[in-house]
Amino acid sequence: MNESNTLILRTAALFLMPLQLLFSVFLLLRGHDEPGGGFIAGLVASGAVVLFLFSYGVREARSLLRVDPRDLLAAGLLFGLASVFPALLVGDPLMTAQWWYLPMPGGGTLKLSTPLIFDIGVYLTVVGAILTMVFALSQAESDA
């Protein structure tokens, strides 16, 4: 995919992308309570990168991402697997959800849990999978 020459798209992409990425993290974190979650957030985040890719080309998008999307894929699967085992350590059956409440400075508490780790794994896998495909495809396009 050659980069687009439209000035409007390029400018808009530059502003929209960070917002979209931020929004995807927001969706991911609130997913347990409100509509959202790993799948949706992952789709939004990959949509953000794909928008950037369409306006600036695949090479720019790659260097923006810094990591290979395949690494994201692997990291996502590892996160998913990692959430399986903590239960075993405290003597619960495999995959039982574990919750940890960490007191934060300022009086609040931080809720951490294996479902959250798992959701992050889903998020990373979705982003990694979609970007792996799209990058590969547009690379082939621009090589051809």
Partner: peptide
């Protein structure tokens, strides 16, 4: 269905390629 939608996309991409 939610997972099915995402999987269907993955399978579609695979079959298209």
């Amino acid at each position: 269905i939610l997972t099915a939608i995402v999987i269907a996309f993955g399978v579609l991409a695979f079959s298209v390629v």
